[in-house]
Design a binder for these strands. Sequence first.
RNA 1: GCGGAUGUGGUGAAAUUGGCAGACACGCCAGACUUAGGAUCUGGUGCCACACGGUGUGGAGGUUCGAGUCCUCUCAUCCGCACCA
Length: 814
Amino acid sequence: MRYIPNEIEAKWQKQWEAEQAYEPSDSLLKKKKYILSMFPFPSGRLHMGHVRNYTIGDALARHYRKQDYNVLHPIGWDAFGMPAENAAIKHGRHPKEWTYSNIAYMRGELNALGLSFSKTREFATCDPLYTRWEQEFIIKMYEKGLLFRESTTVNWCETCHTVLANEQVEEGCCWRCDNEIELKQMPGYYLDILRYADELLEDLKILEGQWPQQVLAMQSNWIGKSQGLAFEFVLTEESRARLGGNFECYEVFTTRPDTIYGVTYTALAAEHPITEYIVEHQLVDEETATKISAIANMGERERAQADKEGYALGIWVIHPLTGEEIPVWTANFVLAGYGGGAVMAVPAHDERDYAFATKYNLPIKRVVGDNEALPYTGEGELVDSAMFSGLSNLQAKAKIIAMFEERGLGNGKTNYKLRNWGVSRQRYWGAPIPFVHCPHCGLVPETIEHLPVALPDDVEITGEGNPLDNHPTWKHCKCPKCGSDALRETDTLDTFVQSSWYQFRYATNPKKWHTTGIDKTEASYWLGVDQYIGGIEHAILHLLYARFFTKVLRDLGYVEIDEPFSKLLTQGMVTMDGAKMSKSKGNTVDPDKIIEMYGADTARLFILFAAPPQKELEWNDNAVEGAFRFIKKLFERAEKVSEKTLPKIDHTTLSKESKIARQKVYEALQKSSDVYEKSFAFNTLIASCMEALNALDKQEDGAVWSEGFYILLRLLEPIIPHATSELSEVLFRRENFNVTIEMQNEVFVKESILYVVMIGGKKRAEFEISPDATEAEILSAAKEVGAKWLEGMEIVKAVVVAGKLVNLAVKPAK
RNA sequence: GCGGAUGUGGUGAAAUUGGCAGACACGCCAGACUUAGGAUCUGGUGCCACACGGUGUGGAGGUUCGAGUCCUCUCAUCCGCACCA
């Protein structure tokens, strides 16, 4: 048969569409698999990373369908976000028009790849119908106190004109445009992810073994739980007077209460209220005040790279245990946003404190160990620590916390690096935050019946300010509570909110989309997602938010599961010339062109063959050609197939070559379930199929060819669906796609076994022997063929590995 | 600095989990067919050596009859976090 990919692919894509072949069954009794690749942002065109992502998911979905699972394999569009607005500014296109036309084009591209998505469950997150339910969740969260509005220091990107969540700041820069972020005081909405910090951390254990180690580690670090002691330093009377009686004390947090007797100074952040008071009231000289202000105004990144710097503030506190007076400094390494922005400093046992103390000649007092070089941060026995001297520092830690609690001086405390999730964005193209500011009632949520709060279409997008805020009428409304004139909130939600619950929306039957956000019963049936596939770049952002949202929706009664994604596969990048494909580097390969030249099946085959999914994939035009040749060869060899159905073969009568061919075919069959269900090493499965085809090619038996094709086409269908569907239809009326193929263990039974003879650890000879030879027979055969190397040698030890080899350890005979 | 990962031919990669290292594919070499070849087919291809043979999975040790695989140390590269007290 001639292989004409474009014709075949168009034909099958049309047929699948007509058959609605990939819609899941409504029956919730069947065994199920939910296979989900992360949905794309409709940027305009697919790139190879998408192709890889969806090809992996599609192969799994198609595999499970053939195993008679009810398979949910949906696709949709993460459709809100900045690029749509940027396009509006640059090309004068309306974000909505831009987004939906991109979706239309990309949908065509996905279709051309032969991806077996459910078409009825597709949606875009910018659809008001989606927004409607999201706004309901947000209101419920507000009612539960999980969403709140407050004015704090936020990360502001001047280029994007919006606030960013902590997770969206990379090395002090905006994750999208790489502009250095500024800190700004602004009101905004926050989701109380901290309330779930412990559960988010704990439940990582459930995902152990199911998610990549790396992602678990990254999430755990990001949550950054640490336990220690929080206590107050009380200012000396003199110092209180100096501060005009405005401050009594301040709180510090330490994970090393065991070193409390080694405190020789304490340090405040430049933004700490006391520091600010001192600067404002000129309690330090002008030069120092200027320098402190400079630290406060320094960007996060800049500050992280700066040398240790600080200034004595001219005030003192009292050590809570010893009563000693301790000087208070301000230091540039003390973070304002963590642990109250103040620390106790133990230079002997903390590297930063040590560096600082050395620079400014502050005393250093050892309280752990005796001879170790300072700073010493390891374990040891306490010294010079009053009643705690002699204890191991670990024991002392617990005892000192206990004592603080007994005396009412402080408390054991858990701190997190994780910050609450700021979800306000000062942009147009997002889901409006459904609240109203009423002069009488304050902040009031929109009533559920009035949802969705939809975006106005008639906006002017200039890049200056928030288009919703600038709109002449949109924000003017009536208070849902008292009916007086009020103002609508013009902030929109972070787009990561949409992607935090889309997995539940897919699981809800589209017939119910107007009446319910998430169907609990269906969601319980379909979730967790049995296999989630996506890029490592979402290790923290999306995956942490979606986990958090799942737990919140559970507590609000919308769903019944704890974790949304049971198994996660993080695919590697697609590279070319060793670098990530990107437009700026000019090393992209356009999926459309590849499909046009070779067809979708070749693209799919190459992508799955060239590397295991977890690893980086280096694009190689020659290897793509090779993938094409393999499919072409399949079509050419189709004429060797003589039977219309699975033939019965008498294995014993076959030629040696035919036996080997059958064996290779069944080896591939044996491999397949392991690959699809466990290892995802599609490359090895494809290699096995290639080996089988090569072996078939070395023999002439029509029945063996028929059986081989019957099995190989079925194995390859998830990978190259169009080509295999065509061949299967012509050769077997697709019967081979619909039945379970049983293993024929007879093909693995051998008449003789090849043994390798190793002498002195080196391979020296080999021999064939009947499978039921005794160990003694095997050994004597080995000695016979290895005689040449045994001459003048004494066998010290002989090891016979059944079915494999004989190893003779030797030494020169005396 | 902390955490995670990865080191195997010219290249992408395999290795039944301790049992013949380099399957499969790309590339390369030789040959066949061909008006032609960037098509197709056949054979070869880790390295050193004419060969006998030696040697080889980042490096050094160790365990074992036997190590790419297990243990100890070490080097290199990549990724993430990064003054979190």
